[in-house]
Structure formats: structure tokens, C-alpha cells
Design a protein around this nucleic acid. Structure first.
Lengths: 341, 341
DNA sequence: AGCCTTTGCACAAACCTTTGCGGAACAAAA
DNA sequence: TTTTGTTCCGCAAAGGTTTGTGCAAAGGCT
């Protein structure tokens, strides 16, 4: 077969017609006679002609590429969201470039710039853990490139976003623990600057007061979402005078780390300590005991995000930012059911 | 700031010089006077000029994009390999488009075509589970686009690949079980057409004979790597007359599923049944008991794959296919140590 | 003064595609 | 024969960049 990719020019030369004629014939333009059209199409097929999207991109000023920036692709949470994004993008002929920020806002900024330089048609972003200064997104706003945030968001008046109702979910988790007999509920939270931290803390406090429990500052600890820090703060939590009988963790990592620490301390879950958190189906069911958790509708988050983005890309006039709040589901499993034992 | 992206033309117009002069000034060509060079650079900076990679791609016939096709991004195994790929690609200014085949060879073929149409500079592929006809890769060979396989490979004389030494790893696992007192070792294998299935079976048999154990066909069961089938074959395995005292599973999913079934049957791991497999650090340590497993050097696999690919891309002359065989490490944990109990 | 070399820049082609417009060839109507 | 109208196709521009070549002005030399 052909070693080099064949272009319209090649076809035109072979047939002794002009490039524009070939181009038109290929799309059944009425200017071209049926006979010639057939000849062109046959040759194009035989030579396996494929339009060059690069040239098209240059002409139409669009790349059919969308960029995704996530803190870490090596987690079930992000990879399954990405999976939703990819499936939606593929349906509409878009390619997806993924870039991992490794929880660093500096790398997020870099990737942002790279993707913008590449002329991506749109961006989907989840903020890094240490994101504090959001001015980098001015870049985006000025560049007229649509962007949608998910999960960890900012500047929601300017950019669309898809999140879950963190406050409600956290409230639900807290109340669930109360209803299962736990009376001293601690919370391992994340960095202050993340909206998910703030919102889940708010929900936690709301839940507490709803149950008539008072909020104890010493039962709220922060960590950077690493395995190591999670272990440290769990130990700290469990070695206080006022030791909690339940822990609500902000995410998977925190929970699993806490689970290990508790086991090492000889404490049983859920008998001695109840454990709940935010997780996903897979991880929650692989540990023993199974984890009661808020299940993120990860695939849907991805689908919503790409849907929102493609809407913005395809609409001529700039659309107002839109917020999609997905309902998360409480999955009751073993780690929190002291009552039935 | 500027709403539209600025081009060389814009700069040239503003400064009253030609486009080529601006282009050369920007790259310190000696033809351009220092004064003009400075003026050009200053304006380029002020206007935030960024070369358009699309135009460059058209000119240089390269996109700086590499395509990756994996069976399923939503697994720790693939996502961490991808992470290695991405890190290597980023270092050399390449973007990575990921495409999930969902274990379907038909989708693999589709993605292959898409990526080729996009003019990706290179491809990294892991075969889908149902891949049997490898003729689709003729396309690639004819198109002179470098491709490297990893993990699940084919046509290794034509394409480079990076794998682990499956035979040796499987042998090691089997011998390990024997050394820990297990005498009736079963193996849950994968589909026949995958090289990893074949090789691990070979290593399993090698290990058996090395230990003086005879290979029993009824102790070798196949499954499609799904959670459901894994559970079914495990039950089948454990309800035979000649019930095994150890199971060696081909991967994570199989192992976790087997673990659950065993637990449901009231069997204790590792006391009643030893359990080993191929997994990764994270999953192996999150389950209880911790899983003895061959740890895939996932990040390295990714790094090697992208390294090989970039070598081929950057070499003018076509290189002969190269095989990289990474050493996998046996991580001894709790699920197989009957002896120390 | 006449010639040559250097300096400093512009022109144009090439990469591939789409598309508005112009135009040749031919037939039919006036 | 001239006009009008079709049919069918080519030309050229545009999108952004690199790069070989051309060329004018200025300086140095004899």
C-alpha cells in the first residue's frame, strides 16, 4: 500500500482534475458530474484517503480535541469520571487529552497553558489540592475557550461546573451514624481551600446539630489527603481524652488509612468505631468490613461535564455558566451498622 | 486582553515587517538585527504570542500527539501504566490521547483508525481481551506510524513491546505456594488468545513440575476476567472432589472475587486456602488479608513503552522491533503464609 | 569611481483543506 | 449570429508556520 498518507492533491494528480473538484466530489457537491464523482470516490477508497484533520483544524480554527486536567489519574474516582468524559466525547467525534496535575496547582497552570497552546476546543478541570489563587483562569476567560469544572471547583459564576451535593451528603452520613447509635462523631477533613472540604464540614456540622450533638473542634481534624497524614491524624483523633466512636472521612484514602490504624490499635469496625466516608462502589466493597459510603456517581459526573462543555462549544453565543448538582447516594454497608450486631 | 489568538501575521502587521522576519526574530536568527529582534520579542511577549502547533503540525507533518489504547482505563493497573506514559510524554512535549477499548477488539480497531486519521505521531496499545485477528495492525505497518504494545501483545517481530516475564513470575508464585505448604494448587486463567494467559499457565505448569506436583486439568479453569465469572469458576473449583488448597489467580479481579467466594463458603485465607495472584501494590494491601502477589512495575511499564515509542519516532530510519521484558517482583504478604501461623 | 561582500530584510512555496467566484464549453432560445 | 442559460470544473484565498532564495542598501576595498 501507500507509504505516505494520501492527500487531495494526490488524488487530483492521478485523475487529472483539480484539488477543489476532488474535494467537492467527495462530498457530493452538485457541481460535479455523477460520473466524475464516482471515479473520485472509487480512487479515494482504493487509496484509503482520509481527510487531514490538522489542515481542517487550521482552516476551521478548531481541533476536535478537548483537554482534561485531573489531580491524579491513578485513582478509581478520577479514572471513572474520565471514562464518562471519554464516552461522551467519542460519541461526538472529539478526542480527549488527559493531563495529570499530581495535585499541584503549578502543574495545573502548566497544563492549562499547554492545552490552550494546542488550541484545544474546550477544557474540563478538577482543581489541585493546593489551588488557592484562581487568577490563572483569567487566561481561559480571555481566550474564549469553554471550560467546565467538576468536583473541586472555583469561580462558579464564570465557569460551568458539575458537583455533587456535598452538604446534603455529609449531613446524611452524619445522621446515619447517629441513627446507628454513634454519639461521638469525628471528621477527617481536607485542605481548607477546597470547596469539597468546606462543604462536607458544613454538612457534618449540620448533621450534628440536627441530631442534637454538639460540634467539638477537637473532633475535626484536617489532612492533606495522603495516606501518611491520614494515619497520623487518625491516631491523634483516637488518642484524645474525648475519644470518638465514629469517624467520617472525606474520601477513600483517608478512610482506608484510618481503617488500618484502627485495626493496629486493636479496635473493631463497626463495633468499637463506626467508619463512613465518600468513596466509590469498587473500593468500598473490596475492603473488610465493607464500607458504608456516599457513592459518587462518577460516570455521570463525567457525562454531565462533557455534555455541558460540548454545549458551550457548539453554541455560537457565549452561554451563562451553569451549575449541575448531582445527587449522591448513601450506600449502607457493614462499617457503620453497630445496631444489627 | 486579546480575544483572538495572535499570529505571526498580527505581529508583523503591527511592526510593519514581514511574517518571516518575525518568525526568524523569535528564534534569534542571525539575519535579523538585534534591535528588531528585541522589538519583536517584546511585542510577542506583550501580546502573549504562542506558536500555533496546528500550523506547525501541518508543515512538519507531525502532531506531537501520541495515542494510547487500553482495554479499560478504570483499573489501577492501566491507569498507573498510563501515568508512566504521560510523565514520559510530557517531558518531551508530547500530548497523550487516551482511548478505551472496553475490552473490545472492534473498538480497538476503531480507535486505531481514529488515531491514525488524526495523524498521531505514535501509538501505544494493549490488546483487548477478545483480540484474535491481528491483521488490523497491517494498517499501522503500512502507515509507518510507530507502535508499541505492552502487557497484552502480538506480532512482536514487527512491533516493539514491553511485558513482564510472565512465565518466570507464575513459576515463582507456584513454587512459593509449595514452599508454604500448599500441595494442591489451582489456577484461574484468562482467555486463550491472550499471551498473558498462555504464559502464566506455562509458568504455573513449570512451577508444578519443579515442585514434583502433577498438573491436574481440573485445577485449571478459565474465565473472562469479569467479577461474575471469577466467582462462578471459583465455586466450581472449590466444589470438586479433589478440592485445591491454594488458588493462583491471573489478576486482581479474579483474586478479589475468589476471596469473597471463599469467605462466603466459610473458608479462611490463608489457613484453609492460600491465595496468590498478579496485582499491584495498592489493591494487594487494601484487602484483608493482604494479598501475596506479583507486583507489576506499572509505572515502569509505562515509562518503558513511551521511551521505546519516542525512540522510534525520533529515529529517521525505521528501527527493528525491540522487546523489553521487565522483572516483576513477588511481594509476600499474608494470603499465602500458612507456615508462620 | 567601480566592484565585492556583508547586512538585513521580503517573497514565495509548502503543508492540506474548504469554498466563493469566475469562466469555458455547450446547448437552446431569440 | 447573438444572447441566455446550464453544466462542470479550475483558480485563488485563507488558516499559521518555516525556510530557501532573492534583493536592496551599505560598507570596504582597490
Amino acid at each position: 500500500m501507500s507509504r505516505k498518507r494520501v492527500s487531495l492533491k494526490d488524488l487530483a494528480n492521478e485523475l487529472g482534475v483539480s484539488i477543489s473538484t476532488v474535494s467537492r466530489a467527495l462530498k457530493d457537491h452538485y457541481d460535479i458530474s455523477p460520473e466524475l464523482t464516482k471515479k473520485v470516490k472509487d480512487l479515494a477508497h482504493a487509496w484509503n484517503y482520509r481527510p487531514n484533520p490538522i489542515a481542517l483544524g487550521l482552516l476551521k480554527q478548531r481541533t476536535k480535541i478537548i483537554g482534561v486536567i485531573v489531580p491524579d489519574i491513578v485513582t478509581h474516582f478520577f479514572s471513572s469520571i474520565f471514562s464518562g468524559i471519554e464516552s461522551g466525547a467519542k460519541e461526538q467525534g472529539y478526542h480527549v487529552i488527559i493531563s495529570s496535575s499530581q495535585e499541584s496547582h503549578a502543574k495545573t497552570r502548566e497544563s492549562l497553558q499547554n492545552l490552550l497552546d494546542l488550541r484545544a476546543d474546550g477544557l474540563i478541570v478538577c482543581l489541585a489540592q493546593d489551588a488557592e489563587d484562581y487568577s490563572d483562569f483569567d487566561l481561559i476567560q480571555n481566550s474564549e475557550v469553554p471550560l467546565v469544572f467538576f468536583d473541586r471547583v472555583c469561580r462558579t459564576e464564570e465557569f460551568s461546573s458539575v458537583v455533587i451535593d456535598n452538604i446534603e451528603a455529609a449531613r446524611e452520613l452524619t445522621v446515619h451514624l447517629f441513627q446507628n447509635g454513634y454519639r461521638s462523631i469525628a471528621h477527617i477533613a481536607g485542605p481548607e481551600n477546597l470547596n469539597i472540604s468546606r462543604e462536607r464540614i458544613a454538612g457534618y456540622q449540620k448533621g450534628l446539630s440536627e441530631c442534637g450533638l454538639s460540634f467539638k473542634p477537637e473532633h475535626l481534624v484536617r489532612c492533606d489527603l495522603s495516606i501518611e497524614q491520614s494515619a497520623i491524624v487518625t491516631e491523634k483523633l483516637m488518642s484524645q481524652k474525648d475519644v470518638p466512636d465514629a469517624i467520617f472521612g472525606i474520601n477513600d484514602t483517608v478512610i482506608f488509612s484510618a481503617m488500618k490504624v484502627l485495626r493496629r490499635m486493636g479496635l473493631k469496625v463497626p463495633q468499637d468505631v463506626g467508619l463512613v466516608g465518600f468513596s466509590d462502589e469498587f473500593h468500598a466493597t473490596v475492603v473488610e468490613p465493607n464500607l458504608t459510603a456516599i457513592a459518587h456517581p462518577t460516570f455521570e459526573i463525567g457525562r454531565e461535564a462533557i455534555g455541558l462543555l460540548l454545549d458551550e462549544i457548539n453554541s455560537r453565543t457565549p452561554k451563562p455558566a451553569k451549575q449541575v448538582i448531582l445527587k449522591a447516594k448513601l450506600m449502607v454497608r457493614e462499617s457503620s451498622s453497630r445496631i444489627n450486631l
